[in-house]
Design a protein around this nucleic acid. Structure first.
Length: 601
DNA sequence: CTTAGGG
DNA sequence: CCCTAAG
C-alpha cells in the first residue's frame, strides 16, 4: 500500500489558520476563553494494512504540497493510496488562536486577507480531496474483498455507483472560497446531516450487519444512503432508495426488484431460512445501532468495519410499507431528477411475452411456427430490413430508407430524396427543410408562427408543425402522409391503407367504413386515419397541457371524438415524435452526404 | 381509470 | 392500434 501524503497540508492549514484567525476577529465571533495549542486536528498519516497510523514522510509532504498547489489535481495520483483520516475542529477553526506565532515572521494584519482566502480555498480543497481518497479507498477495499471472498454471484463489477462528490463540492468551494464567512464555515461544518465535503463520508459503521431495507422509513433509508455513498439524497422514492443502496452495497447494478439478498457485498439468489430469520431478528437492533453510531471517532477504521461486514440486504419479502404522505408530497429537487428518472419503472414480463416465450419453446419441440401468424397480425415487429419499403402508389412520395451510420450505429433512416428544382407537390416542405436543417429550429419557427409555445422536448415534432404552415389542403395532407410514411418506413410498418385514407379524406371525414379494405393489406380492427386537424389539435393540446396529460387533451380537444382514446393520442404523439426524429436524422444524413459529395467533386 | 411502454 | 402493467 502506497503511503499517502497530505502532510504539508497540515502546515498550510496551520499557517493559514493562523492568519485567518486574525481576519476572523473582524467578524463577531463567539468568544471563547479556551485556546488550544494545536487548533488543527488534522491527521496527516496513512493507514497501513493493519490499520495502524503511520506518520507521513518528507516525501509525502512534498507530494502533498504539489497536490495542494495544483488546483485541479487528478485524484488518480492518490488512487491507490492508503486511507487518510482527518477531522477539523470547527470551533477551533472559527475561534482561532491569537497567540499562535506566525512562522513566516510576517505580521498577521499583512497577510490576513490573502491568507484567509488561501485558507478557505485550501481547507475546502483538502476536504474534497479527503473525500475522494476515501471513496477510492472504499472502492478498492470492497473490490478487494469481493475478489477475496469470491462469491458465486453473477454481479457485474461496476465502477463507483455514487456520483463523484466533487461536482457540487468543488463548485461550492469555488464559489465560497472567496467570500465564505466564519459563520458559513461553521454552518457547513456543523451540519453533519447536510451535504458537506468535510463531514459527509461513507460510514460503514452504519451499514454493517444485516439490514432489511424494507422496514426502513424514508428517513432511515436516507441515513443508510448517506452511510453507503457518503452523500445526501433527497429522493423520496423508497424503491429507488432501496435499489440504490443495494447497488452500492453490492457494488453492482444488477439488482433485481424482487427476491434477492445481499451478503458480503454480493447478491445471492436464494435465501436460506436461517438467513431470513436472522434478518428478521437483527433488523431492528441494527437499525437502532445505526442511528446511534453517528460520527464515530477516527480510529473506527473502515477497514475493520468492512472486514466484519456482513451485509444482508433484503428488498424482497413483505410489500414495502406505504410511505408517509407528506414524504411523497415533497417534490424532488432538480439535482436528483436525473437519478430519479434513471430509475426506470420496472415491469414484470407481460403475459403476452411469457406466452410467446413458451410458444417459442413449444414450436421448437413440435416444429410448428406460431410466430408466422403473429407476425402477420403485427407486421411492425419486423425490422425495416426484413420489410423493405414498397411504393404504395403515392407517387409524390420519394421516401426511401437507406443505411446510414451515425455514431457508429448503423441506423436505417428514412431518406427524402431531394431533387432540386424538381417540381414536386411538397416542394414547400422540402425547401423549408433545406433552409432549416435543424429540426428543432424549424419547429421553433413554426411554433412561433403559430403562436404556440412548445417546449423544447415537444418541439421535436417538426413535420406536424410544418404542415400547418403549408397553404393548401392538399399539401397538408401530403405532408401528413409524408410524416406517416417517414414513420412507417422507420418502424418498418406498412400502412398503405392509412396513407390512402389520408389522401382521400378531408377533415374529419368519418368515411372509414366506406373505405374499401386495401388489397392484400389487412387493416386494423378500429383504425381511423389521423386527419390534419386532429394532429393539429393534438399538437396544440400537447403544447398547452404537456405530453403525458392525455386525458386532459382528450377531454378538451377530442371531446366529441369517442374513437380517439387518450391512449390513441399518446400513441399518435409517440409516432409523431418518432417520425420527426427520423426526419431529423434524415436531414442530417442529407447534409452530411451533400457535404461529402461536394468535397469529393 | 390513466399513463407508460412493448408489441 | 392493441395489450398490459403499474399506479
Amino acid at each position: 500500500m502506497e503511503p499517502v501524503a497530505l502532510a504539508e497540508a497540515e502546515q498550510l492549514v496551520e499557517r493559514t489558520l493562523d492568519a485567518n484567525s486574525d481576519s476572523a476577529a473582524a467578524v463577531p465571533a463567539p468568544s471563547s476563553p479556551k485556546h488550544i495549542a494545536n487548533p488543527v486536528v488534522y491527521q496527516l498519516v496513512r493507514v497501513d494494512g493493519n490499520g495502524r497510523l503511520v506518520p507521513a514522510t518528507d516525501d509525502e509532504v512534498m507530494e502533498v504540497e504539489d497536490m495542494v498547489d495544483e488546483d485541479k489535481c487528478q485524484i488518480s495520483s492518490v488512487a491507490d493510496t492508503g486511507l487518510i483520516e482527518g477531522s477539523i475542529s470547527n470551533e477551533e477553526l472559527s475561534h482561532g488562536s491569537s497567540d499562535l506565532k506566525d512562522s513566516e515572521g510576517r505580521t498577521q494584519s499583512e497577510n490576513s486577507k490573502v491568507n484567509s482566502q488561501k485558507f478557505n480555498a485550501r481547507i475546502e480543497y483538502i476536504g474534497v480531496m479527503l473525500e475522494k481518497v476515501k471513496k477510492e479507498e472504499r472502492l478498492r477495499l470492497s473490490v478487494g474483498e469481493r475478489r477475496h471472498k469470491g462469491e458465486n454471484s453473477s454481479q457485474k463489477a461496476v465502477p463507483q455507483l455514487s456520483p463523484p462528490v466533487n461536482d457540487s463540492s468543488t463548485n461550492q468551494s469555488e464559489a465560497s472560497g472567496k467570500c465564505l464567512t466564519i459563520s458559513d464555515r461553521e454552518a457547513i461544518a456543523k451540519s453533519s446531516s447536510s451535504v458537506t465535503y468535510i463531514s459527509s463520508k461513507p460510514d460503514f459503521s452504519k451499514i454493517k450487519g444485516e439490514i432489511c431495507l424494507d422496514n426502513l422509513s424514508i428517513k432511515e433509508l436516507h441515513e443508510t444512503f448517506r452511510a453507503t455513498f457518503g452523500r445526501e439524497t433527497t429522493v423520496k422514492d423508497k424503491l429507488w432508495l432501496k435499489r440504490r443502496i443495494a447497488m452500492g452495497l453490492t457494488n453492482s447494478c444488477d439488482v433485481p426488484t424482487t427476491s434477492f439478498i445481499i451478503r458480503n457485498n454480493t447478491i445471492v439468489t436464494t435465501v436460506s431460512e436461517e438467513e431470513e430469520e436472522k434478518c428478521g431478528m437483527q433488523q431492528s437492533e441494527d437499525v437502532i445501532k445505526v442511528d446511534e453510531k453517528i460520527n464515530s471517532s477516527c480510529e473506527d477504521s473502515p477497514i475493520i468495519s468492512l472486514n466484519n461486514q456482513h451485509v444482508h440486504v433484503s428488498l424482497s419479502g413483505k410489500r414495502e410499507r406505504e410511505p408517509e404522505e407528506h414524504e411523497l408530497k415533497n417534490e424532488i429537487p432538480h439535482t436528483e431528477i436525473n437519478e430519479q428518472t434513471a430509475a426506470k419503472r420496472v415491469r414484470k414480463p407481460t403475459r403476452r411475452y411469457i406466452e410467446e416465450l413458451s410458444e417459442t419453446d413449444t414450436r421448437e419441440s413440435n416444429g410448428r411456427s406460431v410466430f408466422a401468424v403473429k407476425t402477420g397480425e403485427h407486421c411492425q415487429s419486423l425490422r425495416p430490413h426484413d420489410q423493405p419499403f414498397q411504393n404504395t402508389g403515392l407517387d409524390v412520395m420519394t421516401v426511401v430508407t437507406r443505411e446510414e451510420s451515425f455514431g457508429g450505429s448503423g441506423v436505417q433512416v428514412p431518406f427524402v430524396s431531394r431533387v432540386r428544382g424538381g417540381r414536386r407537390p411538397r416542394k414547400n416542405f422540402v425547401s423549408f427543410l433545406n433552409c432549416h436543417p435543424s429540426g428543432s429550429m424549424a419547429a421553433e419557427l413554426i411554433t412561433n408562427a403559430l403562436g404556440v409555445c412548445i417546449s423544447q422536448q415537444e418541439s421535436e415534432n417538426v413535420e406536424s408543425d410544418v404542415k400547418d404552415t403549408l397553404p393548401s389542403e392538399q399539401h397538408e395532407q401530403l405532408v401528413n402522409s409524408e410524416a406517416e410514411e417517414m414513420l412507417n418506413s422507420c418502424s418498418g410498418q406498412q400502412q398503405s391503407v392509412e396513407l390512402k385514407n389520408l389522401g382521400s379524406c378531408g377533415n374529419d371525414s368519418d368515411d372509414m367504413t366506406t373505405e374499401p379494405a386495401a388489397k392484400g393489406v389487412e387493416r386494423r380492427k378500429h383504425h381511423r386515419a389521423w386527419t390534419l386537424s386532429e394532429v393539429t389539435k393534438l399538437v396544440e393540446g400537447v403544447s398547452r397541457y404537456g405530453a403525458g396529460k392525455w386525458s386532459e387533451i382528450k377531454r378538451v380537444a377530442f371531446a366529441p371524438s369517442s374513437y380517439r382514446t387518450s391512449v390513441d393520442l399518446k400513441d399518435k404523439w409517440r409516432n409523431l415524435l418518432r417520425a420527426s426524429f427520423a426526419l431529423t436524422l434524415a436531414d442530417k444524413a442529407i447534409l452530411f452526404s451533400e457535404h461529402w459529395c461536394r468535397r469529393r467533386t
